[in-house]
Amino acid sequence: MSTQLYEVVAKGRVGSAATDCLDIDGVMKGKENVPIVNSEISKIMDAFGKSRFESIYLRVGDVEVNLKKTDPVSSSLADRTGFTPKNSLDSQHVKTVSIKSPLMGLIRLAPASNEPPFVEVGATVDPDKVVALVDVLGTLSEVTALYKGRITKILCEADQLVEFQQDLFEIEISD
């Protein structure tokens, strides 16, 4: 049997505890010295946001994540967790979707290390705008925005391994 991978303490109303745990389990495959990256933390937040837990404490190696919902039924969850529900419509009917990685590889957010990034938060992009490159043993493939809109969040860390279909950017679609 493997050693304990990570520590999770979750409290709150448990509707479907097994599913909630499984969601976090599916996100978190880091052992203590497998580094946890920002995109994984946002996935954990995502899972926590969707769960009916009220608080969660998570430790992976040096990284500790402490999340709490002060008002579990409030709609301002995003303020406290940094989590924005995807594909949700707010009052202005703005649709937020994510740009996913078409390949597994190292994500390059700039054309070269000494150059500015392809996009930054707030940038407006067209569907064919290159927003990142995926590097597979030196072979670079372009990631395009696929939507016309505004980049609202960068969900990945430069030069980290990203999975196939991992969320890379959040984009607010404009018609």
């Binding site: 493997s2 880091g30 052992k31 390949l103 597994m104």
Partner: peptide, 16 residues
Amino acid sequence: RNSMAAHMADRSICIG
């Protein structure tokens, strides 16, 4: 993604 190997391994990576 939800295979037994993915759950047993210390980490899983979706490659395609």
